[in-house]
Amino acid sequence: MDLATFFIQLLNALQYGLLLFLIASGLTLVFGIMGVINLAHGAFTMVGAYLAWSLAELTGSFWAALALGIPLTVLLGAAVEWLFVRRLYARDHLHQVLLTFGLILILEESRSLLFGDDVHAVAVPALLSGSLPLTDTLSYPVYRLALSGACLALALAMAWVIRATRVGMMVRAGASNREMAEALGIPIKWVQLGVFSTGIALAGLAGMMAAPVSSVYPGMGNQVLILCFVVVVIGGIGSVKGAFVAALLIGLVDTFGKVVTLEVAGVKLLPQLAGMSVYLLMAAVLLWRPEGLFGRRP
């Protein structure tokens, strides 16, 4: 691998990791703050991607699709919280597993009814359709760079909101002590509604933004969900910093795991292990620190 290829792969790894972080942060946020385990989180990414595709077809503009899609996912998240999730805050995680697994079936079938089961490509918006030349023969698509930038900006914005604003204060208060927060007059129900729909919106937005890069297909949500779980297991539960580090690690391992074929004494080591590299990383972390890289030790 020469330097330019390495550089391109590095950029790919970063873009992948940042996107993964955006989705996983929604999952961690909802779990860390509200104690809700949402198996349907990945399905909302799938919903976002299909929304981006259908709205772009409808309006002819990716930007219009984003502008319409974001409020739609927020509304969807709020509706799900208001109708279902709200009733399960005080219950066992098993009921949340049951509920959100049911939601996956409903979302997947609704998608099948509304949009069909085909794979679709979404065109890269004209504004970002160029490529940056790296060497004489190699170049890098602008859209991927913009995608990484947008993910990073969103991550920073999120950190700022949680750390430095009044809304963030309410969220943190609600996370550490629900009753105390209520006694202080924090409208906890609205905070929960807000956090849940934000988490869903992050998943949906990630799906929309990724659509031009990864194409849109049924079952894409499952893949995303499982990688998000791996991120949380590696990073440590409830830790946004951990999720960030773990997502980037996974981006690197997955990207380079596919490119680099291990050769020992001229024998190629099972190329099919590439798809497993991420899980092997997780196994290693579990062996070393069962509570994750940034998890609190029991």
């Binding site: 279902f84 009733r87 399960l88 009921h95 949340q96 049951l98 509920l99 697994f101 049911g102 939601l103 996956i104 079936l105 409903i106 997947e108 079938e109 609704s110 009814l113």
Partner: peptide
């Protein structure tokens, strides 16, 4: 069929 099935599961959870 997964649609009604999902609805039943959600109802059981609730």
């Amino acid at each position: 069929w997964q649609l009604p099935m999902g609805a039943v599961i959600v109802a059981v959870a609730l």
